[in-house]
Computed example of a mutant assay.
Amino acid sequence: MTTTDRTGLARTTALTRTVRDVVLLVARVGLGVIMIGHAKLEYDVGGSLAGVGRLFAQSGVPLPALTGPANVLFELVGGIAVILGAAVPVVGVLMALNMAGAWVFVHTSGLFAMDRNGPETVIAIGLLSLVLAVTGSGRLGLDHLAVRRLHRTPRPTT
């Protein structure tokens, strides 16, 4: 039921914002857990950061000795940042680019190839990353707290 008075409208708006913030939190935690889990998987399979570089070399990723370890560290640190709601727009864009690279170099089978090498998962992770990059962390993230603090700080007059 929709009310037309200002009190009802304010209540609906507050509820909508709260639901939005909770959904963004769930999406952030989900993406962050996936990123951290993927970093751990790559590290475990490679056996070390150098080993991850060798895995990247086998997949034809350019500059594997650099991109392999950097990818593991980015997914670990970025995953933690996304869960906390810190630097979500930046991490979201970088993760989407990371997933585009994974699609081009690693997940090269056709869509729904059923060979565990299809790009569906990296496409979904990349799209979620872009959505979070555009929407931000919501009110339940550190980004929101930092922005609020910046707006409260009085600016010096000249």
Rank of each mutant, 00 (worst) to 15 (best):
E42I: 02
V26H: 04
V45S: 09
D5E: 07
A100S: 08
G60V: 07
G110L: 09
L66A: 14
V131M: 11
K40I: 15
S48Q: 11
A81R: 07
A27V: 12
I80P: 02
E42H: 07
R149S: 13
H38V: 05
M114F: 12
L66D: 00
I83M: 12
S59P: 01
E75N: 08
G138M: 06
P69S: 07
N117P: 03
A65W: 00
F112E: 04
A86W: 09
G141P: 04
L111Y: 12
N71T: 15
L97V: 14
G53L: 04
T157F: 08
M1I: 11
L127R: 00
V104G: 00
R20K: 12
A86Q: 07
R54K: 15
A113L: 06
T13Y: 10
H107M: 04
L24V: 07
V93L: 11
A57F: 04
A27E: 05
T157S: 14
T12Y: 06
I123L: 14
P89N: 04
I34H: 05
L31D: 04
G101K: 03
S129M: 05
R152M: 09
L55V: 07
D143G: 09
H144K: 06
T3L: 09
V77N: 08
A10Q: 12
L130E: 10
T108D: 00
P62G: 06
N98V: 01
L24S: 03
L97M: 13
V93F: 10
D21P: 08
V88N: 01
G85E: 00
N71K: 08
P69Y: 02
N98R: 01
V91D: 05
E75H: 03
T2S: 14
L15N: 11
G92D: 08
A87Q: 11
S59N: 15
G126W: 01
A87T: 08
G126N: 01
V82S: 06
H107Y: 06
A133F: 05
V23P: 05
G8F: 02
L142T: 08
N98D: 15
L66V: 15
E42T: 05
I80T: 09
R116H: 13
A65E: 05
T4S: 13
T158V: 13
R17Y: 10
V88C: 03
L73A: 13
V19I: 15
A57T: 05
G79P: 02
A57S: 14
R148Q: 13
L55W: 04
G126P: 00
I80R: 06
T153I: 13
L140D: 01
R28P: 01
A14D: 13
A10Y: 06
L73E: 13
R139E: 05
R155I: 10
M99Q: 02
V131S: 11
I36C: 06
S109I: 03
V104F: 15
G8T: 03
T135R: 14
L142P: 00
H151W: 11
H107I: 07
T135N: 12
L130S: 02
A14C: 06
M35T: 02
T2D: 11
V131D: 05
A57G: 11
G79T: 04
I123T: 09
A100V: 15
G51I: 04
L31K: 00
R139D: 04
F112P: 00
R116S: 14
R54D: 10
